[in-house]
């Protein structure tokens, strides 16, 4: 029995070491992946803006891109573990405020996701004016968060 406990403890220690090593090795990866998610949001934003400049915007394209923003945003907001800020030594514009005022960060992230879902809904209903308003609101929700939590170049 004692021997078995010893094995379990040893196994846990090994697991702990491996996971620690894994986290240390992937902080850079987490940051790069996170940035890729945000880049996808920017690309989808442009696709929506391009549509809205057309005389008759495609609601399907806008809805798909709004969906892509929600999905990428959801993944991006989960990719802010402690230690993945500027202290990680990787090039990132994530400010320490994200972890210092994490409640605010979560609130603003949730608002952004709500805004992208609302845009998808508006596109589904097909009213161009509502879509425009929802797109502006989504853009504003991005800016609201960036102004406090992203480094300005």
């Amino acid at each position: 029995m004692g021997k078995q406990k010893g094995y379990i403890a040893a196994a846990l220690m090994v697991c702990g070491t491996i996971s620690t090593v894994a986290i240390a090795a992937t902080t850079a990866e987490i940051i790069t992946t996170r940035q890729a998610h945000f880049k996808n949001i920017a690309k989808a934003n442009k696709a929506i803006a391009d549509e809205l400049k057309k005389p008759s915007p495609s609601m399907a394209i806008i809805r798909n891109n709004a969906g892509a923003i929600t999905a990428a945003g959801d993944r991006a907001f989960r990719a802010f573990p402690a230690g993945s800020g500027p202290e990680a030594g990787v090039k990132t514009e994530a400010l320490p405020a994200i972890w210092q005022r994490s409640a605010d960060f979560r609130t603003l992230s949730a608002r952004m996701l709500a805004a992208s879902r609302a845009l998808g809904t508006a596109a589904g209903q097909g009213n161009a004016d509502q879509v425009r308003a929802a797109s502006t609101a989504l853009g504003q929700s991005c800016k609201n968060c960036h102004s406090s939590f992203r480094a300005r170049k």
Binding site: F38, I41, A42, K43, A44, N45, K46, A49, D50, K53, K54, G139, C142, K143, H146
Partner: peptide, 14 residues
């Protein structure tokens, strides 16, 4: 962020 863009931005790729 792809939020602000010039008036001919729609003519070019991201």
């Amino acid at each position: 962020d792809g939020l602000e863009s010039g008036p001919l931005n729609h003519l070019v790729s991201y």
